[in-house]
Design a protein around this nucleic acid. Structure first.
Length: 250
DNA sequence: TGGTATAAAGCGC
DNA sequence: CGCGCTTTATACC
């Protein structure tokens, strides 16, 4: 069993909606003997399972905690500009419809779509979120890509996370703050006109303060996207914590 | 070395 | 407004 049920010293928030809920099971509390004056609670993960898709979702921070984190992010985060804010796709350089910055251990970088995003040194705000997730899940991370979607016009297209620089099999932890947004998984065999199979898309709504653990082999088989939702006016900031291959040279 | 994939926008419906 | 589909020439195994 791949479950990880972890105790945290806080009450977790409400579960959010997963549209195709018939395939979702809530993880039951295990046979834990934890009795820390009732102050410690197991995280209730919503398990999302399809063929070669394995994700766990929970509301990780209370509204109050998430509000404070979002405010601090808006105050302290500075995003990449210029060449660093573009991708090379289908022969053209394109501006991205969002803002992006990365933090990580010394000398780490992440290459995708013809560009290299260098990690800035960790700052306490981001380090704290990373440490919270590690405490809750047991997984470590040495890199995070931060995407800021200023409103519902900002988005990211269908893609798979580029695995060249990622430690194979390590989960990606996606923490969301701010505007709840739809998040869509589409199986690689069900895309386009010459799809060979008809596998339904999987849609989630990623809530303020939520954590989505994307586990192996999800990213090898499924594309994901954050489609535009043009009526939404509020900002969303997303952190995707990763474990990168550490190279010998800087 | 070639075969393969593409984190984007734009169009039609 | 939202979706599905096409594009395209470079970068990479």
């Amino acid at each position: 069993m791949d479950s990880f049920v972890v105790k945290r010293k806080r009450r977790i928030g409400e579960q959010s909606t997963e549209f195709n809920s018939e395939h979702v099971t809530k993880k039951s509390k295990d046979d834990s003997t934890e009795t820390d004056q009732g102050a410690v609670h197991s995280i209730l993960w919503k398990e999302i399972r399809r063929e070669n898709l394995c994700c766990d979702y929970t509301v990780f921070y209370s509204k109050h905690q998430a509000d404070e984190l979002l405010a601090e992010c808006e105050k302290k985060l500075i995003y990449n500009e210029g060449q660093m804010a573009r991708v090379h796709l289908y022969g053209k350089w394109m501006e991205i419809a969002r803002k992006q910055v990365a933090f990580g251990d010394d000398c780490l970088s992440y290459r995708f779509s013809g560009k290299t995003v260098l990690a800035r040194p960790w700052i306490p705000l981001v380090q704290k979120i990373k440490d919270d997730i590690t405490k809750a899940t047991g997984y470590t991370f040495n890199f995070v890509l931060v995407n800021r979607y200023k409103d519902g016009h900002d988005h990211i297209g269908e893609h798979k996370d580029d695995e060249k620089d990622l430690v194979f099999g390590h989960p990606i932890a996606s923490l969301s703050l701010g505007q709840a947004r739809d998040f869509v998984f589409k199986h690689q065999d069900s895309r386009g006109k010459k799809a060979t199979r008809d596998i339904p898309t999987v849609k989630l709504e990623l809530q303020h303060g939520s954590l989505l653990m994307m586990k192996h082999p999800t990213n090898s088989f499924w594309y994901h996207s954050l489609p535009a939702r043009k009526k939404l006016i509020n900002v969303r900031i997303n952190f995707t914590f990763r474990q990168m291959v550490v190279k010998k040279t800087c």
